[in-house]
C-alpha cells in the first residue's frame, strides 16, 4: 500500500491503538496490497474514551464489557454487581487498554 494512504490511516485511527503497536501496524500496512484499503478505511473501531465514559457511568452493569465484545465478562460483571464494586473500579483503569486490544484484534483480521 502507498505510504501516503498508510499515513492517512495512522493519522485518523492512531488513537484507537496502543502506542507501541502503531509502528507494527504501519510496517504491516506498507506490505499488504491495495485491495485491503476499501475494507480498512471503512472499518469501525471502538473509541477508548467513549468506552471509559460508559465504564464510569454504567460499569457496574457490565455495559462497557458488552460494548467491546467481552460478553462473558460483561455477564460476570452484571450478575455480581460489578464484581462487588471492586472490579467496576478496576475496570475504570483497565478498560481503555482492553478496548485498544480489541481494536488490535479487529485490525488483525483485515491484515492477515
Amino acid at each position: 500500500m502507498e505510504a501516503q494512504k498508510v499515513d492517512m490511516f495512522i493519522m485518523s485511527n492512531g488513537k484507537f491503538f496502543e502506542g507501541h503497536q502503531i509502528n507494527m501496524i504501519r510496517e504491516k500496512l506498507l506490505t499488504v496490497d491495495d485491495s485491503k484499503w476499501a475494507m480498512l478505511s471503512t472499518a469501525q473501531f471502538k473509541d477508548p474514551t467513549t468506552i471509559l465514559i460508559i465504564s464510569i457511568l454504567a460499569g457496574s452493569l457490565g455495559i462497557d464489557r458488552f460494548m467491546i465484545g467481552d460478553t462473558g465478562l460483561g455477564v460476570g460483571k452484571l450478575i455480581t454487581c460489578g464484581g462487588f464494586g471492586v472490579w467496576a473500579i478496576i475496570d475504570w483503569f483497565m478498560i481503555q487498554n482492553a478496548t485498544r486490544e480489541k481494536n488490535m484484534q479487529k485490525i488483525q483480521q483485515f491484515l492477515y
Binding site: 457496574s60 452493569l61 454487581c81 460489578g82 462487588f84 464494586g85 467496576a88 473500579i89
Partner: peptide, 9 residues
Amino acid sequence: SKSVEVCLI
C-alpha cells in the same frame, strides 16, 4: 442490612 452496602449503584 449491611449486605447491600458494597453495591456502587
